[in-house]
Amino acid sequence: MQTVEVSHIVKSFGTTQAVADVSFSIERGEIFGLLGPNGAGKTTTIRIMLDIFKPDQGTVSILGGPLTEDKKERIGYMPEERGLYQDIPLERCLLYLASLKGLSPAEARQRLKGYLERFDLAQHKNKKVKELSKGMQQKAQLISTILHGPELIIVDEPFAALDPINVQLVKDLMRELRIQGTTIIMSTHQMHQVEELCDRIVLINKGRNLLYGALNDIRRRYASHAVVVRADGELPPVAGVAEVVPHNGDVKLVLREETTPQDVLRALVAQGAPVERFEIAMPTLDEIFIRAVGEGGA
């Protein structure tokens, strides 16, 4: 059973079409990247999934069917920016939001204690939310999203305002949750985080699917016919190489159409070249994003 199934949703506001045709499905226990440039329709898609908006067309299935009031307790949502009451103490705010998710006060307190300590917020629990730094508020918001132990988590820019230590903390937490079987939908512009965490992605632009599938498959699809080589010294000339390009201190060999990477590796070894690193040149997700959006927008 798919945890989330979004099928050909369409949403317009007046004359503006926010979502033209978006479809994807997410399996239990995966981290799924919902990507796209600003204004692509990501937030509208999330709001349709959460039943804040009704789609004009298409269907959404969450946790095995339409979103019901009971299912809301099984979902955690962290909107981009803010989301917490600013004028009340942190602990009170988080306990209240947890109570709305069906958590008993005792259970909520117990869980909150652990999370506050883990996120280094325990000594700030009596401070008003507005008195906390942006990074602290971001962590607090994440706690609010996961405190009730949801099966599905939707997070919009989870790493915003976090320093590298806290980014690592959040990444570890997300991996932990995935191991526990929690499904995570992550919308972010930080592509390197997506590369590290996500199993699959959907890239939407102008309200439509642009790329969709397993991250490795997509990268392979966008891989150029080239290899990256690092050697202790200068590389000898190799037959079948069309172009040699410097690449972050290494060398990128762009191959002719009929040449395979294995041909090049064999030729280098045969010539006794001091090869330290040899890999197929895979594009970064940033490069794929720019290329796909550029092509899609052309």
Binding site: R47, L50, I52, E69, K72, E73, I75, Y77, M78, P79, E80, E81, R82, G83, L84, Y85, Q86, D87, L97, L100, K101, S144
Partner: peptide
């Protein structure tokens, strides 16, 4: 109005009607 400004409303309506 504050709940709207803080986006708290979006969290609330994913918990209650």
């Amino acid at each position: 109005v504050e709940e709207k400004e803080n986006r708290t409303i979006e969290i609330l309506v994913t918990s209650v009607t």
